[in-house]
């Protein structure tokens, strides 16, 4: 049977990785990245969230059904985003 729970070592390594990423975001926000500043900071946030989901929230150790339920929230969130911007970005279009 595979492990059903992260070990102390995994938790500490995950925490160390998260703190390094936090340092990276804070530093990147002061770097001359121009238009890439926001995409980079959001990308780092997404990686941090993935680490929290996989190891602190144990999705790495869970079966498919629970992973699908976790993904469902983001699927519906993407519908909110896509439909909202379909509206606002096309308002200037002439008929």
């Amino acid at each position: 049977m595979t492990a059903s729970h992260p070990t102390a070592k995994v938790l500490l390594a995950n925490y160390a990785a998260l703190m390094v990423l936090l340092g990276a975001t804070a530093l990147a926000s002061h770097a001359p990245l121009g238009v890439w500043r926001t995409p980079i900071s959001l990308l780092i946030a997404a990686v941090k969230m993935a680490l929290v989901f996989l190891f602190f929230m144990q999705l790495w150790y869970r079966r498919g059904l629970i992973r699908i339920f976790a993904a469902a929230g983001f699927f519906w969130l993407s519908i909110i985003g896509v439909l909202t911007f379909c509206d606002y970005l096309t308002r200037g279009w002439s008929p």
Binding site: I66, F69, G73, W76, L77, I80, T84, F85
Partner: peptide
């Protein structure tokens, strides 16, 4: 996780508002 999916959408409305 079902509850958390609803929570993602709860905050999702504000994130969408912010994005616009």
């Amino acid at each position: 996780w079902t509850f958390l999916a609803t929570e993602i959408l709860f905050f999702g409305g504000l994130f969408a508002c912010y994005s616009v």
